[in-house]
Amino acid sequence: MPDTEPPTHAWHIDDREYRRQEERRGRRYAYTSLDPARTALAVIDMVPFFVDASPYARGIVPNIERLANHLRNAGGTVAWVLPARTDRTPTGDEFHGPETAEMFRDSGGTGPLPDRLWHDFTLGTDDLLVEKSAPSAFFPGRCPLPELLQERGINTVLITGTVTNVCCESSARDAWTLGYRVIMVADANATGRDRDHNATLHTIYRSFGDVRPTTDVLALIRPGARCAAASPRCGSAWSTPTPSTGSGGPSSGTPADARPTPRPTSQSPRWSPTVPHDARPAAGRTLNSSSPATPSADSPTSRTTRPTRRDPNFTQGR
């Protein structure tokens, strides 16, 4: 039989949710413009463990690749986030069961970070490669990504990857809490079922960020894709976020300076100086990578291995 294209989710946002936001703020989308130089594409957990087992995850690869290429060419940041191997815990064993807990601990594979990504992606020399030791890439102390983005003056995060309703949703929520403008790309996230995917999109759109398709986001990345400043429907500009010290929503900021924060030079490290890193580049590339703040002591790095899928239902969640 001829090969068929892998599917993408039949996603939707209810009209009543669009109407709710339009009544609240006078426009459907909160963020009607973005500065590519201050925008990061976060690609969550696109590793063989998840992508091999999910046709929906394979289906979003072309959209993620398009977003990465366009944003990179426009001067933005692409961040590839991989699962770290974490220490075994009694809670993990109790919740998942020891065998499944071990399977998830191995989900990111081992070896140099570039080799652990899904093989169809093209990496740029200025891309970030990081590990996270929690579902969220923005949970304090469990991933160096927030600090790295702050160094680059990033104020807007595009969430893509898998699994929509676990690590992607967790990352979107925590990014908003830290003060980032969050856009979840509807057809560049994947999980096991449409209804799980759409439940997350509903939650994010209602309370944490915009939900838009790849074509909309590409149009925002395109130079000059900004609404007139005098328009009442134009989204506001935000400053570079800093972690909030209160218990409420994102930390407030003054209008951002029109000039983007200078990017690190080729001599500047692209990892947090307090976080261990794996500095070995992939063949033919100069790629910097960071390890989680609390890496597992038993994480092997001498070879690249890919975990086997033992649970046929694991793509429904962790």
Score class of each variant (00 low, 15 high):
266 S>L: 09
210 D>L: 11
192 G>F: 07
34 L>A: 03
186 A>F: 04
77 T>Q: 01
276 P>M: 08
244 S>E: 13
3 D>T: 00
242 T>W: 11
249 G>C: 06
283 A>R: 15
295 P>I: 13
263 R>W: 05
137 A>L: 02
76 G>N: 07
68 A>L: 01
293 A>N: 13
73 N>A: 15
257 D>V: 09
273 P>K: 05
202 H>S: 14
18 Y>E: 02
63 N>V: 00
65 E>N: 13
48 P>F: 08
38 R>M: 03
234 C>Y: 00
150 Q>N: 14
300 P>V: 04
101 A>G: 06
296 S>M: 02
110 T>N: 13
63 N>M: 01
55 P>C: 00
187 D>H: 13
18 Y>C: 01
299 S>H: 15
285 R>V: 13
249 G>M: 10
274 T>Y: 11
252 S>P: 07
27 R>S: 05
157 V>Y: 00
168 C>H: 06
110 T>Q: 12
3 D>K: 00
88 R>E: 09
222 R>I: 01
163 V>M: 14
91 T>W: 08
26 G>M: 03
42 A>H: 03
188 A>G: 12
267 Q>E: 14
259 R>Y: 01
93 D>R: 09
63 N>G: 04
210 D>I: 04
231 S>W: 10
1 M>H: 00
81 V>F: 05
69 N>F: 06
86 T>G: 07
296 S>V: 02
279 A>H: 12
12 H>T: 12
140 P>A: 07
41 L>A: 12
79 A>V: 07
190 A>W: 01
103 M>C: 01
225 A>P: 04
52 D>Y: 14
289 S>E: 11
218 L>I: 05
207 S>Y: 08
72 R>G: 07
137 A>F: 03
141 G>Q: 07
274 T>S: 13
146 P>V: 05
72 R>M: 00
229 A>M: 09
96 H>R: 10
223 P>V: 11
307 P>E: 01
133 S>K: 04
285 R>N: 03
79 A>R: 04
158 L>Q: 11
54 S>M: 11
2 P>L: 04
293 A>H: 15
2 P>S: 14
33 S>T: 10
129 L>S: 06
156 T>P: 07
167 C>W: 04
51 V>L: 05
69 N>G: 06
312 P>M: 09
224 G>Y: 03
3 D>A: 05
292 P>C: 15
126 D>H: 14
148 L>D: 06
237 A>K: 10
55 P>Q: 01
115 D>T: 06
233 R>F: 11
304 T>P: 09
152 R>C: 08
225 A>I: 07
109 G>D: 09
261 T>C: 09
7 P>A: 06
276 P>I: 10
109 G>I: 07
11 W>K: 09
283 A>K: 13
119 H>S: 15
144 P>V: 02
193 R>A: 15
101 A>C: 10
130 V>R: 02
264 P>C: 00
81 V>Q: 01
127 D>H: 14
24 R>D: 15
234 C>G: 08
224 G>F: 08
208 F>H: 10
69 N>I: 07
146 P>N: 08
112 P>L: 11
16 R>S: 11
61 V>G: 05
34 L>M: 08
259 R>M: 09
143 C>K: 12
189 N>K: 02
142 R>V: 12
215 T>C: 05
164 T>C: 08
46 M>S: 04
210 D>R: 12
181 R>D: 14
121 F>G: 04
